[in-house]
């Protein structure tokens, strides 16, 4: 009986079966603690070791010089700003490409879903080194071939060092799988055709339906896709380095030779910055009106893959993206009190 009715009351009889359910409950709790401890040590040990390395100089004792010198370090501000700009542009471009495509295939023939999924997943099987080799070849070949056409200027413009559009294009390709997975998971949780029809029946045009009905129900997924892309761009090294640009990840590597402690300090700070940004984005994407159960970006899943794509600190960044993305199950108690007159 005790096993059937999991109440807090103990068995009435001393010779009753000694609550196997209780034992079963304690065992997972014990293992859960052990697993959490091991995982915590696995993640925290390198971080703590790195922090100790940055603040402890043999012979000098405790010093924060590695941190205090970051802002004045040459190239820090520029590279960080460049990476954030590239991330913003990449997020915008990727969402602009994938959101309409996925909505269209939800409303169109189902067979198109597989096609779009395959196209979006292809970058997962193409190593960044292969991608950058192809891009570099085109960038070398293009100006010579199109030197007498307007495309010549285009080839130069996309390689502008202050804002290399070619990196945005490359990062968009790399981010496609994660953006697709996150948004697809969100769209699966929403009955898109019926919602569209309901909105159309209420007099809404197609653009209004997308902006005011579909997108608000994808806020969690949009946030998830955004910070997966952000993490990827902040940590991406291979493409940027081989194309000769110097965003944040490349700067960290370049500064590590001369300033080892500062390099590690910057890596730690970049993790904190990434976590802070992810926190902001996740909070923005999990507002009280984001009430689609199961539409959270955690369903996207490829955070591990995101980590593997980057280098020079990207693992930590992308990994943190995965941990920061939590499903936003609707909380009835958190329902907002509508403000009369609020649009």
């Amino acid at each position: 009986m005790a096993a059937l009715t999991p109440l807090s009351t103990p068995p009435a009889s001393p010779d009753a079966v000694p609550a196997p359910a209780g034992a079963a409950r304690r065992r997972p709790r014990y293992w859960r603690g052990a697993v959490l401890t091991v995982a915590g040590l696995y993640f925290l040990t390198p971080l703590v070791s790195s922090f100790v390395f940055t603040v402890h100089v043999p012979g000098q004792g405790l010093t924060f010089a590695a941190y205090s010198g970051i802002l004045s370090a040459e190239g820090f501000t520029e590279s960080l700003f460049l990476s954030l700009s590239l991330a913003a542009a990449t997020i915008a471009l990727a969402l602009l490409l994938v959101v309409p495509a996925l909505i269209a295939v939800r409303l169109g023939p189902p067979r198109l879903r597989a096609v779009v999924e395959i196209v979006c997943m292809l970058p997962l099987v193409v190593p960044p080194i292969a991608l950058v080799t192809g891009i570099a070849t085109v960038l070398r070949w293009g100006p010579d071939h199109f030197s007498r056409t307007p495309l010549y200027q285009t080839f130069l413009a996309v390689q502008n060092e202050s804002f290399p559009v070619v990196l945005v294009l490359a990062y968009t390709v790399l981010a496609l799988p994660f953006v697709h997975r996150s948004l697809d998971a969100g769209l699966r949780a929403v009955d898109v055709p019926t919602l569209v029809e309901a909105a159309r029946n209420c007099g809404a045009g197609r653009l209004y339906v997308i902006l005011r009905v579909i997108l608000p129900n994808l806020r969690s997924s949009l946030a998830g896709a955004s910070f997966l892309t952000l993490a990827l761009v902040l940590g991406e090294y291979t493409v940027a380095s081989l194309l000769g640009f110097r965003p944040f990840a490349v700067w960290i590597v370049s500064v590590s030779g001369a300033e080892a402690r500062m390099s590690v300090a910057v890596s730690l700070l970049s993790l904190l910055i990434t976590w802070a940004l992810l926190l902001v984005l996740s909070r923005a994407g999990t507002g009280p009106s984001t009430a689609v159960p199961g539409a959270g970006p955690s369903a996207a899943g490829p955070t591990g893959s995101a980590a593997s794509l980057g280098s020079a600190g990207s693992a930590g960044s992308a990994g943190s993206a995965g941990s920061a993305v939590s499903p936003s199950a609707p909380d009835p108690a958190a329902a907002p009190i509508p403000v009369p007159g609020k649009e």
Binding site: V190, L195, E197, A198, R200, N201, P216, A291, P338
Partner: peptide, 29 residues
Amino acid sequence: PANRRDAGMVFQSYSLFPHLNARDNVAFG
């Protein structure tokens, strides 16, 4: 087009907009 027809429809699967409360759902049109 569907959005210019003067017909109100109730669907089998409710089809309320999940991000809107009941009042905003009713007032959507």
